[in-house]
Structures are given as C-alpha cells and as structure tokens.
Amino acid sequence: MPTQQLDYFASLVIDDDHFPLTEAAIAVAQHAYPDLIIQNVMDELDLLGDKVKQRITSEMQDIQKLQILKNYFYQELGFGPNRNDYYDPDNSYLHSVFETRRGIPISLALIFMELGQQLDLNIKGVSFPNHFMVRVSLTQGQVIMDPLTGTSLSKHELQEMLDPYLDAQGYRGELQLPLSVFLRSSSSREILSRFLRNLKAIYTQQERWERLLGIQQRLVILLPNAVEEVRDRGLALAQLDYIRPAIEDMQKYVDECADASDLDEIREQIIELEQQYRHH
C-alpha cells in the first residue's frame, strides 16, 4: 500500500485554515491512478482560469462575472452530467472529468468553484441532500445553482427536491426542518468527505475491495474522529485478507463505541478473523 500518496494526502488535509480542496480532491484519484501528476491537473485548471479572466473587466459586477463563467463552463467547454453512466467512478475523479467533460454534481462543482474563486466570486459548496449544490453570494442576494447544468434554483424548486428526503428521514410535520438548514455552505472537509463517500458507495456496490480500501484509508485520514470509518477500513481489509490489520481496526471500533448498534456483528467478525488467522 503506497504510504507516500497517503502521506501527501494527509499533509493536504491536516489543517482546516489552509485546506487546498481542489488539490486534495484531485489527489484522491491517486489510489486508482498511481501515475497521476496532480500538478498537471492544477496547471490545466489555471489555464482555464486565465482564459476566462481575460473576459472580465474591473468594473464588472459579480452577477456579470457569474454569467460569463457559466457560459464558458457549460456552453464553451461543454461540462455536464454523464447521463449514460452516472455511477462510473471516473465521474468523481477530477482529472478524468477534465478529459471527458462529464461528471456528477460534486465533481463539476469543485471545478466550477475553483474557477469562480479565481475570478474573486464568493462561491461555496452546499451539501444538499442527494444533490450537491453551489452557492454564489452576489450583492443582489444568494444564488443556489445546480452544478450539473448551471441552472439557478428557486426556493420552491429546492423545497420540492428536499421533500422526498425529509419524508424518507421522517422529518415532517412537527419536525419539519426549514430549507435554510440545508443551504448553509459546507466546509472543505465536509465537501471532501462527501466526495469520498460517493466513491465509497460505488466501490462497495461494485465489490471492488482494493479500490474501496484506497478510499477508506483517505476517509480515516480526513475524519480522524469518525471511528466508523476505521471499522469500514477494517471490513475492506478483511475482504482483501489483510487479517491482522482488519482485526486491529475492528477492535478499535469495538473499544471506542460501547453503545453502537452493530457491536455484536463486529465482535463476531473479529472472532472469525482470529480463527482464520490461526489457521494460516
């Protein structure tokens, strides 16, 4: 397991005040593309940023800048959703999204946000349920934008998107949470954890354990207090027959989460793994 890449990723995400989100998101792909040169992708981004900057003048308002950026990103460069294969992991890897111009909301948002920041737009990511959004603060007010298409969404449209989620979670009636709760901007760490968890879900479903382990290692680094990610790394290790480290991860979870609902299951798995280990 390449520790060098993990050390590099760890160095990027260590500090919330200096958190190079775009670079860290590009770096995630190194587990699947070990030869990826991150600086090349960053250079490509800067090149796109320089091109769009040439169209901006000092007296332009932010709303005009946003319009120019949207036009450039969606019309000229042709970024958009991969409708044919939404669950292709490459939709999440930024270097691949660059090549194909196809992504999912969060990967497109990351590129759009980076370009927006280069134009000094006040642009943030929003971890909206089931669909990542972008929020741009303008003098006229807040714009919530769908990063798949660049469409601005009204409160009514956002509420319609939110309602099925609220229903599924049982947040209706007395417990109705206001829309504004779901529209606050997310920290870089929150955005990157959502980005990684998308990949985690895909690789779990596809049972690609080696790939899943690469993601889990990064989630454990990114979220040092999330002991359930340590458990899940243990489960991935067990699938790959790395029995000793798998037991250690699961044991840590059992020791730290005395009231977790899945303790019995995890304890059983530890016992099974220990038996396997003895017979090796």
Rank of each mutant, 00 (worst) to 15 (best):
Y253H: 01
G214K: 11
L213V: 04
F182D: 11
N225E: 09
K155A: 12
C257L: 09
A246N: 05
V143E: 15
L240N: 06
D249Q: 11
V254S: 10
L213I: 08
I243E: 06
I270R: 01
R218F: 07
Q206I: 07
L213Y: 05
G173H: 08
P178M: 09
Q251W: 01
I221T: 01
Y165T: 15
V143C: 05
L183I: 11
I247A: 06
S180V: 13
R267I: 14
R231L: 11
V220S: 04
G234W: 10
D262M: 02
T151H: 12
L240D: 08
E210F: 12
R218D: 03
Q239K: 14
Y165C: 11
Y253I: 00
R197M: 12
E229Y: 14
Q217S: 05
T204A: 12
R189E: 05
E256H: 03
D249Y: 03
I221H: 06
D255F: 00
P178G: 13
L148F: 14
A258R: 08
L153E: 08
I266W: 06
L199N: 03
S187T: 15
T204K: 13
K155V: 01
R231Y: 02
I202S: 14
A238V: 10
N225Q: 10
R267M: 05
K200T: 08
Y203I: 08
Q142P: 13
A260K: 00
W209G: 09
S152E: 14
S188W: 04
G214Q: 06
P245V: 02
S180F: 03
L177W: 03
